[in-house]
Amino acid sequence: MEFEDMKKIWDEQNNENIYAINESELHRRVIRKKNRVKRMINKFELTLLVAMICCGLVTTIIGILHNQLYKLLDALIFFMVAGYIYKSRRDRIKYEGQSNLSLLDDLEQTIRSLDYHAKRYKYFLLWYMLPIFFTILINATFHYSKPWWLWVAFVAFFGFAYWAVKKELRCKILPKKEDLLHLRSLLLNDE
C-alpha cells in the first residue's frame, strides 16, 4: 500500500462517529481535577508560608517578652524562609501563565520545572531544616537543662527528613526527568 492510500483510509474515519461524549460528565471532571491540583499546591505553599510567619512572630514575641534578644535571630531566619517561599510561589504562578509554542518548548519547560523542584529538594535541608536546626542549637546553647534524649530525637528527625527528601528525589523526580530527556533526544535526533 502506498502512503497516499493510507492517507485516504485515514481521512475516511473523519466521517465516522466512533465515540460519544458525555459533556456534562466531562465538564464536571475537568473542573474537579483542575481545582484539586490547584488546591493541593496552594495548600502546601500557604501552609508552609503561614507556619514560617507564625514561628517568626511567636519567636519575636517570646524574645521581646523574656528579653532574650538571641531569639530575634531565630525570628529573622524564619521570616527569610517565609520570604523565599513567597518568592518561589510568585515565580511559579508567573511561570504557569506563560504561553507555550511547541512540543519542544513544553518539554524544555517541564525539564526546567523538574530541575527547579530537584534543586528545591536538594536545598531542602538548607532552606527549611537548617533554620529549625539553628533555632534548636541556639536554644541548646542557652538552656542546658534539656534531657539528652531530646537532642537524639532531633538528630534522628533530621536524619529521617534527609532520607525522605533524597528518596523522593531519587525515585520520583530524577526518573521523570530522565524520561523527558529521552523524549527530547527522540525529538532532536536525525538533526
Partner: peptide, 11 residues
Amino acid sequence: SHMLTEISSFK
C-alpha cells in the same frame, strides 16, 4: 458515570 462511550467500530 462514563464520559466516553465507544458507539461503533471502523468500517
